[in-house]
Amino acid sequence: PCRTSSFTEMFMNCRVPSSKRYQPTEYEHAANCATHGLWILPSLVGGSLLYFHSMDQWHRVAAWLYGSGLTGLFITSTLFHTAAWKIGHLRCLEQRFHMCDRIAIYFFIAASYSPWLMLRELGPWACHMRWLIWVMACLGSMYVFFFHERYKLVELLGYVAMGSVPATVILSMRAGVCELAMGGILYMVGVFFFKSDGLVPFAHAIWHLFVAAGAGIHYYAIWRYLYRPEDLISVC
């Protein structure tokens, strides 16, 4: 049996077996929606700023890819958590939103790497990684479509692999590596909370905050080192 204090019960339900989905409390539902919904407008503005400060066609394409991936992540996450909160009894529809949320993560990871791979000279492997990351995103999406929530550990490892493999290509950079590493560390630490529903109150909302913080640091790095050439310290 689950034993929690009356105060904790207001903000967190009991942990469930791995075969079942955790059911957030009303407070957790609201926090899950707010912690990503609040970033939709800033991500739209941020992507637009990159686009309008683009110097050439490749900068515009990279800005469009990155802005779309960033905004799409926050929109799909907010839509899913809103659906889970308000129409959770419509299990089939909620499941579709959940699949879209999981798919958006793959494309967000690919979009986050695209500006660096497209706008920096990083050697021959970067040319292959530019399209390989999108192949990985498509394969991950197919996995979600056919095996959604059947093998949760496999899905988590897929995200980690896609987030770490392209990083081996951009480690040769000097300017921007510290920011990228810091953002990556925030994502990795946030995974602890992602897996802590029923153990830590508002665990999923805390995970959302780590995602937003990591994305913010990565956006700053892209803005400073790829779209503000006067701020460049060194060019790789």
Rank of each mutant, 00 (worst) to 15 (best):
S43V: 02
I87Q: 04
I170P: 02
K152A: 01
V165E: 10
Y187V: 10
F80D: 00
K195V: 01
Y113F: 10
A110P: 01
S5E: 07
H98W: 11
L65K: 00
C138D: 03
L119S: 07
G163F: 11
H98G: 14
W58Q: 10
L199Q: 11
M129Y: 05
A62T: 02
G123Q: 10
S164C: 12
A203H: 11
P24H: 05
M99V: 08
L73W: 06
L157S: 02
M188L: 15
L119P: 02
L90R: 13
H148P: 01
D101W: 13
Y187K: 04
S18R: 10
A161G: 08
G123Y: 09
M12I: 00
I217E: 02
G69Y: 11
W58P: 00
G214L: 11
N32L: 04
E26F: 11
R96K: 14
V189R: 09
S5A: 05
S234Y: 11
C100L: 15
Y51E: 09
G158K: 06
W223R: 14
R96E: 11
Q95N: 15
G47L: 07
W207E: 02
I40M: 03
A137T: 06
Y225N: 13
L209I: 12
W58L: 09
G123L: 06
S196L: 05
M162N: 08
C138Q: 02
R21Y: 05
L232T: 12
I40K: 04
Y66W: 08
N32K: 03
E28V: 12
C100D: 02
R120Q: 10
S234C: 14
K152S: 07
V189T: 08
E230A: 13
F194L: 14
A205W: 12
I170A: 01
T25A: 02
Y22A: 04
I222H: 12
H59T: 03
Q57F: 11
H89G: 00
E230T: 09
Y187F: 15
L93P: 02
I75V: 15
D197T: 02
G123A: 09
V235T: 14
F107Y: 15
F74T: 02
R130K: 15
T168R: 06
H53V: 01
F192N: 09
H148K: 01
M162F: 13
V144Q: 09
